[in-house]
């Protein structure tokens, strides 16, 4: 395999405050050039924290981080000052869940895109504006020329999310981070934005990390899926592997409780219990208290990700994986 665009090794993030929370506990993954990784998890699983850590967005005073993040040849953990600013938005950019909050309400959408372009490249205002227009057309905003001069509040939710994507693409990033970009949208708009993301990714050849709690949305856009639980990746593999042959009991439970075709007269197969408290994670597998397969080993030792038989890239962190491990 060629050298990955993004490589994350043993990433740990702890937040300090009145309570200390271990938000990420030894997260490692790679992302190839032009690949879309769906990061799937519930609230508190660490999926959004992972994205923010990639951009070093956490307040340093209340966060301690360790591990390694490399994007291309850049050591992200070592970035500071001007280099960090160039990295954010230039090499890696982000699309947020709520575009209403990501835009400054006092400036037009066009002004904000132009400003972003000129912050990263030495070009004149007219060229930047032409590029902004091209971006607005690229994200399929109708009447793009007119909408360039619109204020964020004058746009509908779906339109704002498209404009947000245009803003994120302004400096031709190699890696796009999308944090629940379609969660706040109506179903008919969500599918449009998902299709747009897929199309843009293909055309521009960029890598994407798509964070979501919605398996359906992740399946629509991703090449690979990583499932997170309690600040750790518990399973990763191709979309088909994870969705059709889940190896981790949590993934299996999540898929089963995502109502798709459960007969109406049957109770839903629910996972008992509630997601773990990051301030007091159990010593072993974080899912053990809710898991039907849990043994004494699960409660004492954290399982490492290991490959499943038949597919080296399908890995799960479980002592009692539902599939046969490759090296059992």
């Amino acid at each position: 395999m060629s050298k990955p665009l993004l490589s994350v090794r043993d990433l740990n993030v702890r937040f300090h405050g009145e309570r200390n929370a271990s938000a990420l506990n030894g997260v490692s993954f790679d992302l190839a050039e032009g690949e879309v990784l769906g990061l799937l998890g519930e609230s508190g699983s660490g999926k959004s924290v992972t994205l923010r850590t990639l951009l070093k967005l956490h307040p340093p005073a209340r966060t301690s981080m360790s591990g390694q993040i490399r994007v291309g040849d850049t050591d992200v953990m070592a970035l500071q000052g001007r280099a960090l600013e160039q990295y954010r938005g230039g090499m890696v950019s982000m699309v947020f869940q709520d575009p209403g909050l990501a835009f400054d309400p006092l400036y037009t959408v066009g002004e904000q895109i132009v400003e972003t372009i000129r912050a990263h490249e030495r070009i004149d205002a007219d060229t930047a504006r032409a590029r902004a227009l091209e971006l607005m057309e690229r994200v399929q905003i109708p009447q793009a020329r007119r909408r360039l001069d619109a204020y964020p509040f004058e746009m509908s939710g779906g339109m704002r999310q498209r404009a947000m994507i245009a803003l994120a693409l302004a400096c031709r990033p190699r890696l796009l981070l999308a944090d629940e970009p379609t969660t706040a949208l109506d179903a008919t708009v969500q599918i449009q934005v998902l299709l747009l993301l897929r199309e843009l990714q293909r055309e521009l050849g960029m890598s994407v990390i798509f964070v979501t709690h919605d398996i359906g949305a992740a399946v629509e856009v991703s090449d690979r899926l990583a499932v997170m639980y309690g600040g750790r990746i518990v399973e990763e593999g191709s979309v088909a592997d994870v969705v059709q042959r889940p190896a981790h009991p949590y993934t299996a439970g999540l898929l089963a409780s995502t109502v798709v075709d459960v007969p109406r007269d049957q109770a839903l197969p629910a996972i008992p219990g509630a997601p773990p408290d990051l301030a007091a994670l159990p010593p072993g597998c974080a899912f053990a208290p809710r898991c039907a397969h849990a043994s004494a080993q699960c409660r004492e030792q954290v399982p490492a990700l290991q490959a499943m038989a038949g597919d080296e890239r399908h890995r799960a962190a479980c002592w009692h994986a539902l599939l046969q491990p490759a090296h059992a």
Binding site: M159, A187, T188, V189, I191, Q192, G216, V219, A240, V243
Partner: peptide, 25 residues
């Protein structure tokens, strides 16, 4: 019909190819 076909597919081999509706509500 449009609302129902806007639901994301759960099958990676059979992803949604076209959006059933354009524009926002």
């Amino acid at each position: 019909g449009a609302l129902l076909s806007a639901v994301p597919s759960m099958d990676p081999a059979n992803r949604t190819q076209r959006s059933p509706l354009a524009g926002d509500p």
